[in-house]
Nucleic acid binder design. Structure first.
Lengths: 154, 154
DNA sequence: GTAATTGCAAATCATTTGCTTCGTA
DNA sequence: TACGAAGCAAATGATTTGCAATTAC
């Protein structure tokens, strides 16, 4: 791998439209509600993991929606493999759209908590297959996060 | 990399002794208390991340120690770089001894929560240096976790 | 002796659950 | 209409904080 494979990715064109995602949800038994649409739109507009707090403070969701409802919908989306829960050092859970092997890796500042999205060919995919063979684990996926002190905080 | 580089690691000889770790802590301004010694011993005996709950249910710590005290000591150890907080899908925080680049990667069952420790040459280290150069982030480190369904749960 | 550490109690904050009402299909 | 989804309130669980008492150095 050479350096040109690695650059910070500020934003990418979404892989799907809100409409297609809504249809996908409906095909898995979910109903089309205002919250579902707003949530999917929010996920499509951010390739960074989103915290429940960020969801609730979003203007299109915010006051109009109960906390428990947000948690329940996120749970239903996760059960169906539409979003993925991401482990985080913060107190609250973070979620991202589940894009399978098109996922991204993150670089997180340990001082200010800022998140940058990295874009490079994932070096772990072949290893993942090897682990699956060795261990017998199924449906393998991975989470890779980098931590450090960003230039502003240093 | 060939397959022989990858095997599941059940347990390893600890990298340090309790005594040397205690001395390290003292050199960073911590006092030698019963909890500190018990905690360091617990960390040395487990290469897996330890949850606060597991710490409190440990016989050598258990009832003899207040919850708030455990949290406060873990915080002091983390500030000094002696342990590292590990992001987790569970509600509670997990910690491991900070072994720098001698860290391990984990394979976690999404069904039963079981954790296996993987032992292989980390494929991310060179990438990490590249990221440091590109982004200007300092003190870089990473967390890599694999998730899947273990043979028992499948 | 002094500053760090602890214990205890109470406060926060995230997340979950029960139950009733509402809205989509 | 029927069942999934939302709203509301209360419960649970993890983590944090204030303050007075204790202990290592």
């Amino acid at each position: 791998m050479n350096d040109s494979c690695l650059h910070i990715c500020e934003h990418d064109a979404p892989a799907s439209t809100v409409e297609s995602l809504v249809e996908h949800c409906r095909s898995k038994g979910l109903r089309k509600t205002a919250l579902l649409v707003a949530l999917l739109r929010l996920f499509l507009n951010s390739i960074k993991p989103i915290s429940v707090q960020a969801i609730q403070s979003d203007s299109s969701i915010g006051d109009s929606c109960d906390t428990a409802t947000v948690y329940r919908l996120l749970g239903r989306l996760e059960e169906r493999g539409i979003v993925r829960r991401i482990g985080s050092h913060e107190r609250s859970m973070h979620y991202v759209l589940n894009l399978g092997h098109n996922h991204r890796e993150y670089l997180i500042c340990t001082q200010c908590g800022g998140v940058e999205v990295l874009d490079f060919p994932c070096p772990v995919d072949t290893l993942e297959q090897k682990i699956a063979r060795k261990t017998g684990y199924q449906h393998l996926y991975h989470e890779l996060q980098f931590f450090g002190v960003c230039p502003k905080c240093a």
